[in-house]
Structure formats: C-alpha cells, structure tokens
Amino acid sequence: MRVVVFIGLLAFGLNAFAKIDFVEYVKRNRNVLKKSVELPKTTAFKEINPYRGVASMTDALPEGESKESTSPSSSENSASSSEDSDSGPNK
C-alpha cells in the first residue's frame, strides 16, 4: 500500500516537473509584452495644456449617446479577484 502511494507521488512529482504548459506560456508572454508597452498617462479635466502626446479630449461625445451597458448589478458581489488591484499610477 505504502509502495503504491510512494510510486504515485513519484509519478506526480515527475509530472509536476513540467516546466512549460499553456498557462505558463501565456504568463511568460504577458511578462514580455508588459515590459514593451507604454500606456498613455492618466489625465482628466481637459488639462489646460495637456501633456504632449496625450490625446485632446475636446472631441468628447455628448451625453446620452452611450448605449453601452453599465454591467449587471446582480454581479456586484463577485467583486474583485486576487489579482485585482485598487492601487494605480496616480496613487
């Protein structure tokens, strides 16, 4: 019995040795891509003199044109996951 458990654990150990799978591959890619991306700086209030390279917001759409959902309130409780963050560049 103990031998069976030992061999089973050994086999599991060898399997866990796997170094690359789909999830790991996606993660590696994400890390590479994150380093290479430069997102625009956060801005608001149609800054008097926006940072160069930041899009002008003078072409803002009028209120009421949005048809997008503001997402279902029923999902309020599912809130944030462990990787959700409430900190940011402007904190």
């Binding site: 956060t42 801005t43 608001a44 917001m57 803002a60 759409l61 009028p62 209120e63 949005s66 997402s71 999902s75 309020e76 409780n77 599912s78 809130a79 944030s80 996951s81 959700d84 963050s85 409430d86 940011g88």
Partner: peptide, 18 residues
C-alpha cells in the same frame, strides 16, 4: 462581474469621453 481594474478604467474612459 465588476472587477476592480476594469471598473477603474471604464470610469476613466466614460468620464473623459463625455
């Protein structure tokens, strides 16, 4: 569902887009 990072970004985009 409403994940923090997505809601934060949507808040910013909707506010800035009017």
């Amino acid at each position: 569902g409403p994940r923090a990072q997505w809601l934060n970004k949507l808040c910013e985009l909707q506010a800035n887009d009017g």
